[in-house]
């Protein structure tokens, strides 16, 4: 009787672990069709009024970016994550101004800029920035000077006005070093921020009216960081 019980228990544990494994670690199945995507977007967030799927951009095995056009002719973004054996919408933006999507918490190499600019805004390029302001501090006899950090990456638009981009290598290198020192502080802070400047065909900074101030849906666990529009005047060009 007891032997039987042990056998049964062992079998149960093995079965359970297989189910758990299958549930959490299984490799993703094929991505839903465009019709299914539209349907799911409008079911979860009716305000999206998605009508055309522009593309499906796989960022890694478990993260897919889907730019879409709405019935109001807005260019939006949807963020899809493979979770619990399903492709789920993690977040929807009705307008596609650039945002930083952090796939894996604090690891800068998993940070991606994503965007879907309305073509009517007629941008020809975007300049992305990683900035830490110059500053100094004198307290309790200890002097500190903070050099300005300003790193830039330019993206020019050819035929597509949507896309995704991993942070450049030197940004990742800098951020890793910076975050390591910052996290060893007794009161960690973060003064780094991300910004962007949109340029038109004549290389003038413009305001992309149709691509900003959208509304959004988010299931809460998705990690995104706002990317601020900067003024050309704030950028140092020695």
């Amino acid at each position: 009787m007891t032997k039987k019980k042990i056998w049964f228990l062992g079998l149960l544990i093995i079965m359970l672990s297989i189910i758990v494994y299958w549930f959490y670690f299984s490799t993703p199945t094929s991505f839903p069709t465009n019709e299914q995507l539209v349907e799911e977007l409008n079911r979860i967030f009716p305000k999206a009024t998605a009508s055309i799927i522009q593309d499906t951009i796989s960022i890694d095995e478990r993260h897919v970016l889907v730019p879409f056009i709405s019935k109001k002719d807005d260019y939006g973004l949807s963020y899809w994550v493979w979770k619990n054996r399903k492709w789920q919408v993690a977040s929807i933006d009705t307008k596609g101004e650039p945002i930083l999507w952090k796939l894996n918490g604090n690891d800068p190499s998993s940070f991606y800029f994503v965007w879907n600019i309305n073509p009517k805004d007629q941008l020809s390029s975007i300049h992305f920035y990683l900035i830490r302001d110059r500053g100094y501090r004198i307290a309790e006899g200890i002097e500190r000077y903070y050099p300005r950090v300003q790193m830039e990456k330019r993206i020019s638009f050819q035929e597509k006005s949507y896309g995704s981009m991993q942070l450049p290598d030197d940004w990742i290198t800098f951020m890793n070093a910076y975050l390591e020192v910052e996290s060893a502080k007794q009161s960690p802070g973060r003064n780094l921020f991300f910004g962007w400047i949109p340029y038109d065909l004549t290389n003038q900074q413009i305001f992309p009216e149709r691509s900003v101030n959208g509304s959004g849906y988010s299931e809460g666990k998705v990690d995104v960081e706002y990317v601020m529009i900067l003024n050309k005047g704030e950028i140092e060009i020695p």
């Binding site: 002097e143 000077y145 050099p147 005047g233 950028i235 140092e236 060009i237």
Partner: peptide, 25 residues
Amino acid sequence: AIYSDQWYNETLMNTESNKRNERFP
């Protein structure tokens, strides 16, 4: 010695706002 305020002010005053050089680039 670190002359933090002096470095900061030198960088700020010597040139117009968007032509500044960073002392530690």
